[in-house]
């Protein structure tokens, strides 16, 4: 197992390198002079020159590249043009907000997605199965930002049950947090829940056909033990891999959902930075999220290897 962990760690280094390179290149993609774009049309030449210097755009390409990596190695993502603060500091400050909502959404996804997927597999080709799969298909097809607005109209405006936006810190007022985060978490969870239900169903059906499940049934094991002990453990393997994708989708969705609900997380920071052309925040934010995802996928892979011994003994093991 230790060798497998090492193998996976080493394999993620080249990927991380290209990820940092892609983030760096974003600024090079800006057509024309980014400094003029950022400063705006009314800016004086001095202001433009100041921004150009602050971003290091007055340096030749290779110097910019080297100083980008020198900065990264020091854990420095540059500073925001508008907030005048360190990008990493701002990101870390907002991380708990995004994280708490993403976790809430993940709980909803796993509870409903997994539960309904298993139910659909066990009640295969019945009306229950059809209803669950139709809902799952709707889940993957409805745009989540649109659903968020619909939920605001229904639960926030008409029924008045839940707030239409804003954020309450969970460390200060847990119930307030729960009330404020429910609509954003449900909107975020929608797509992933549909995805997870579809995958869980097909993974369960695959496992339920296996000989060992038939053997367990034949030896008279009660149904809940066959499902709980034999089928579920094996069906979890493909499901765990999807959790990496699910988290990636949660992070992607947060840009729009946090903007709609005015939640001060990383997503809304990215959203507002785009409109104000605060390139260091966009660059740093993307790199930060991609790195977190890489780490997360590493954890998922290790979890996967732990669940399925064939993997850790097959390769690198």
């Amino acid at each position: 197992m230790a060798r497998y962990v090492l193998h996976r760690l080493l394999a993620s280094i080249p990927v991380l390198f290209v990820v940092t390179l892609v983030s760096f290149s974003l600024m090079q993609l800006v057509p024309g002079d980014p400094a003029i774009l950022i400063a705006g049309l009314q800016a004086t030449p001095e202001e433009v020159a100041r921004i150009r210097q602050q971003l290091g755009l007055d340096q030749p390409f290779h110097v910019q590249l080297v100083s980008w990596y020198a900065q990264l190695l020091r854990g420095d993502l540059g500073s925001s043009l508008l907030l005048g603060r360190d990008v990493l500091e701002v990101l870390l400050e907002r991380l708990p907000v995004s994280f708490s909502i993403a976790l809430y959404a993940l709980l909803i996804t796993v509870a409903i997605g997994l539960g309904s997927g298993i139910l659909a597999a066990l009640r295969r080709n019945t009306i229950v199965d059809q209803i669950v799969m139709t809902l799952a298909l709707l889940g993957v097809s409805l745009p989540n930002f649109w659903l968020a607005l619909v939920l605001i109209v229904i639960f926030g405006v008409h029924l008045g049950w839940l707030p239409t936006g804003g954020y309450v810190d969970f460390r200060e007022d847990f119930w307030g947090w729960l009330r404020a985060s429910t609509l954003p978490a449900v909107s975020l969870a929608l797509l992933q829940t549909g995805l997870l239900a579809r995958i869980t169903r097909s993974a369960m059906l695959e496992v339920l056909r296996q000989d060992y499940v038939r053997t367990a049934r034949a030896k008279g094991l009660p149904g809940h033990l066959v499902v709980g002990k034999h089928a579920l453990a094996n069906a979890m393997i493909p499901v765990v891999t999807v959790l990496g994708i699910v988290t990636s989708l949660l992070l992607s969705g947060s840009v729009v959902i946090e903007t709609i609900f005015s939640i001060p997380g990383i997503g809304s920071l990215l959203g507002s930075s785009i409109l104000r052309r605060d390139y260091p925040v966009i660059q740093g934010g993307l790199l930060f999220v991609a790195t977190m995802l890489l780490l997360l996928n590493l954890v998922v892979d290790l979890l996967y290897a732990w669940l399925d011994p064939r993997i850790r003994y097959g390769r690198g093991g």
Binding site: V15, L16, V19, V22, S23, L26, M27, L29, V30, P31, S248, L249, L251, S252, G253, V255, L270, I274, R277, Y279, I282, Q283, L286, V289, A290, L293, L294, N297
Partner: peptide
């Protein structure tokens, strides 16, 4: 490794 929509946002924001 980038979430699809975030990378698209980054590229579109740059362009």
């Amino acid at each position: 490794a980038f979430p699809v929509i975030l990378l698209a946002i980054g590229i579109a924001a740059a362009l």
